[in-house]
Design a binder for these strands. Sequence first.
DNA 1: TCGGATTATGCAATCGATTGCAGAATAGTC
DNA 2: GACTATTCTGCAATCGATTGCATAATCCGA
Lengths: 286, 286
Amino acid sequence: MRNRVTLADVAKIAGVNPGTVSRSLNPQTENQVNKETVRKIRKIAKELGYTPNTVARGLRTRKSLTIGVVIPDLTNPIFPPLVRGVDSYLLPRGYSALIVNSDGNVDTELVLINSLMERQVDGLIIATGHGGDEMLKDFHNRGVYAVMVNRESPGVPYPTVTGDDGAGISAAIEHLVALGHKNYIHLAGPSDSSTSKIRAHTFSIECKRLGLNGKIIKTTAYSIEAGQTAMDKFLDHKPAPFTAIVAGNDLLALGAYHSLRTHGLNCPADVSVIGFNNMPFANDFQ
Amino acid sequence: MRNRVTLADVAKIAGVNPGTVSRSLNPQTENQVNKETVRKIRKIAKELGYTPNTVARGLRTRKSLTIGVVIPDLTNPIFPPLVRGVDSYLLPRGYSALIVNSDGNVDTELVLINSLMERQVDGLIIATGHGGDEMLKDFHNRGVYAVMVNRESPGVPYPTVTGDDGAGISAAIEHLVALGHKNYIHLAGPSDSSTSKIRAHTFSIECKRLGLNGKIIKTTAYSIEAGQTAMDKFLDHKPAPFTAIVAGNDLLALGAYHSLRTHGLNCPADVSVIGFNNMPFANDFQ
DNA sequence: TCGGATTATGCAATCGATTGCAGAATAGTC
DNA sequence: GACTATTCTGCAATCGATTGCATAATCCGA
């Protein structure tokens, strides 16, 4: 891309050994070098516009200062804030995030993670957990560092950070019960994700516990389209009456809105809809 | 992270020189090697689970197969689709995107781009253009490859990909004129971005041309909050009556919604609001 | 003033892959 | 059968920074 200034360039002009330049520029090792020399080298490095080559450094130190972040789909509004959070933590610590989208496809995910590892990432943050993840177990055995986020992956021994899905669904139902609803629909997310399972499971349990009439509708993805399609199909079959929808996430809730509208149902007059995640702009939707 | 298999490991087991392994595994150079040898080496490499070290390769070949993508703010819904587009183009070509958020801060941006260059990115995609960008001119002189996207940066000699902002604003006004509106507000984005300037400029021109009454309100950012704040301040001063708002983008339009509502104004009964960008979910908002 | 401790710097190997060059081995030609 | 052309593979330098080891220079105390 351009003729970059290297340690050797600085060394030559300063009349010292590249090793000395390296030690002078690194705060950890600068005390091994004469203060005056450090000052001189720093000055020359600055004048020449020297910037370290992170790639070369990484090769020698076996650290890339890069973390791979595996996201199912960046256009799902809950993920950008997560990515930004990761990024803003890493940046001041000298790290960068390498973000990839798996599209919820397991094969793609494998390709992506392999490409991340070829790029020598120091660790992974994985937001695409799904059931019985052999691939992740394998990585774990090979000593790959990783943290799961948002979704868990049962049987995978990585640390995991998730919300309390069960408590969320309970709270949603509790709220709807207070409003007097008796007949419920749960628009459940794709069944291979832990979040879907927990939410659907809690929904069943709570309906039983509270003596409510609850029905689960499965969707194929956490997206508006999937929610709308599933709901359309359901409504087309003239189902038993219901007045409340607990959607598996906010996008499914939005899909439900669309479907209700096209079926002449009004929200909240006819049906109450509650989402999940409180994604950005969630309260601006209709 | 783990004991990776290197070219040398494969070479030792195959009983050949690492150079031969390198040539065997690279489709470009495999014809320099005996077919039988290639087959054997390929087999061994596969058995050992060899994966190339992209970092080491990049050092030697002076290519990182990485493109830096500079975004103002990933949580602005227009950017994730852009990032995904970039990513899905790069992936099958062996490249990765290194995505950073500048937060619209010029100093941050400089730090970020420098960090991208230290990571030896092969080129940049920059979505943060702002007026008179000395930094970018400097990069251009130093031979840095880049493409501007979404916003342009006047005076910067990089190729640029943008929408036709002027035509968009004209179309918006045309539509509102057809609805019979006479008195317009333009909620303009921050004045250091080219998109804001062009949109505001076109708004003025068109109002003049069509004999409309048009007023421009400036905001400090392309965000809901900035739009709401600016609109609140405007409405608090009991302005001359108006019936149409042309917002600088969809987030500002959303902010306008909020503000109108808190001021007892109804959309579309009292005021029509039109956004810009057609960001994801734009037609689901209220 | 001498010897040991300390400081400062150079040397060279290393990380893992690529590649120009050279030479060995084989094939092909007359 | 001798000689050139071709094919294949090894050697070693290289990319840029880091770092263990060695050595030269300086310092300090007795």
